[in-house]
């Protein structure tokens, strides 16, 4: 993993979480903004998968448990689509909150992945 890219992902996911939770609690149904925020989070996660595949070849190997890292990464990548799917099924304000919860979980998981990769405090 690359530290600055992980930080970008955590920041984007955290902002997406806040925006979705605030919009949802304000009574907004899933919109281009909230679904788009989740799409951006997912895009970054797909880029992260590529980064994680290429990094070891470029002399940036994983120092923690590879299995644990990949379980986190694959789970994280599944969460935003699940949230959006939910929002498409049921267009209520609570679906917006659910997408916020999804983005927040991704933020935590990406940070945890960075910790596993760098081997600090793992």
């Amino acid at each position: 993993m690359i530290l600055w890219f992980a930080l970008v992902q955590v920041a984007v996911a955290a902002v997406a979480a806040l925006v979705c939770i605030i919009l949802g609690l304000a009574g907004r149904r899933p919109s281009d903004l909230s679904v788009g925020a989740l799409a951006l989070v997912e895009l970054l996660l797909i880029a992260q998968i590529v980064v994680a595949l290429v990094s070891p070849l470029a002399g940036n190997p994983i120092s923690g448990s590879a299995l644990e890292f990949w379980v986190y990464l694959v789970s994280a990548a599944l969460i935003p689509p699940a949230g959006v799917f939910w929002a498409l099924l049921e267009r209520s304000r609570w679906s917006t909150v659910v997408m916020g919860v999804a983005a927040g979980s991704v933020a935590v998981m990406v940070w945890r992945m960075q910790v596993i990769w760098s081997g600090i405090g793992a």
Binding site: L78, I79, S92, S95, V97, V98, V101
Partner: peptide
């Protein structure tokens, strides 16, 4: 529904 979502994430984790 939000409760279910949080439970689902925790179950996954």
């Amino acid at each position: 529904r939000v409760l279910v979502a949080v439970y689902a994430v925790l179950a996954l984790a």
